[in-house]
Computed example of a mutant assay.
Amino acid sequence: MKKILMIEDDLELAEILTEFLEQYDMQITVSDDPFLGISKVNLEDYNLVILDLTLPGLDGLEVCKEIRKTNNVPIIISSARHDLTDKINAFDFGADDYLPKPYNPQELLARIRSLIRRNQGMEQNTAKDSKADNKNKDLVLNEFEHIITLKGKPLNLTVAEYDILSYLIKKEGGAISREELIYNCDAISEDSTNKSIDVIIGRIRNKLGENPKNPKYIHAIRGVGYKLMQ
């Protein structure tokens, strides 16, 4: 059964669409509050979001933008607003489809099935690529579970250590300056000094069992910063 979140303040329309879609093995959750809708996306796994644009308290375009900050769930905009600018902004903010009201529920069903099918294919390909990439690597980043493993064993890292090591893994092979780490790691204060980065790198190396004079993973680049090799 596919889980669909409908963020729609027209409850009569929501009820009609819910009754129709539930005939096709879909579980529909309706939220007429945009803020609650955003919260639901962050707390539960949905296969797709149907999003109205004209909502109380927060415009649907802003809802779309907020969802995209943390989630790649497919989004279909369902709106009576036909302005071209709204459509362009919707796609710029991360919507996958735009369906102007009024429409036949059969068309909505077809678009839902198409997007879910496409998204599942992308996830399967990403999982295959990730598995192949990580097959022969000692350090593996799992962002979903927020862990980094060394030869299959989770590392016990502080938030700052996790942020720095995950950034180095993502930029594997590239020379990363201390300043770049400061500005791209949320757990690192922008007031931090290069010395404080060196201290955290030292702690990470220790947890990796590294010899600083002959490191296997984190290499110092004179005059620049660090790079990760594996």
Rank of each mutant, 00 (worst) to 15 (best):
M1S: 13
M6H: 03
M6T: 00
M6L: 14
I7S: 02
E8C: 14
D10K: 00
L13M: 15
E15V: 03
I16M: 06
L17T: 05
T18M: 02
E22W: 04
E22M: 00
D25N: 15
M26T: 05
Q27V: 08
I28Y: 05
I28T: 06
T29H: 09
S31F: 09
F35H: 08
L36N: 05
L36P: 11
L36A: 12
K40P: 00
V41W: 08
N42L: 10
N42T: 01
N47D: 13
N47H: 14
V49A: 05
I50M: 11
L51Q: 04
L53V: 15
L53E: 08
L55H: 01
L58F: 05
G60V: 03
K65D: 07
R68C: 12
K69V: 00
N71S: 15
N71W: 05
N72I: 09
N72T: 03
P74Q: 02
I75K: 00
S78K: 08
A80R: 02
L84K: 14
L84V: 13
I88K: 03
I88H: 10
N89E: 02
A90C: 11
D92P: 03
G94E: 01
D96P: 07
Y98N: 00
L99Q: 13
L99S: 05
P102W: 00
Y103Q: 03
Y103V: 00
P105R: 00
A110W: 09
S114V: 07
L115S: 07
E123C: 12
Q124E: 01
Q124T: 00
N125G: 08
K128A: 10
D133K: 15
N134R: 10
K135G: 06
V140P: 02
V140T: 15
N142A: 04
N142M: 02
E143P: 10
F144R: 12
E145T: 04
I147L: 12
I148A: 06
T149L: 10
L150R: 10
L150F: 04
G152V: 01
L155K: 09
A160Y: 01
A160N: 12
I164Q: 00
L165R: 02
S166M: 14
I169Y: 10
G173W: 11
S177M: 13
S177T: 15
R178L: 08
I182D: 04
Y183K: 14
N184W: 04
N184I: 09
A187K: 02
I188Q: 10
T193E: 12
K195E: 13
I197Y: 11
I201F: 11
I201K: 10
N206Q: 13
L208R: 01
E210Y: 14
N211R: 03
N214G: 06
P215F: 14
Y217M: 15
Y217I: 04
G225C: 12
L228E: 06
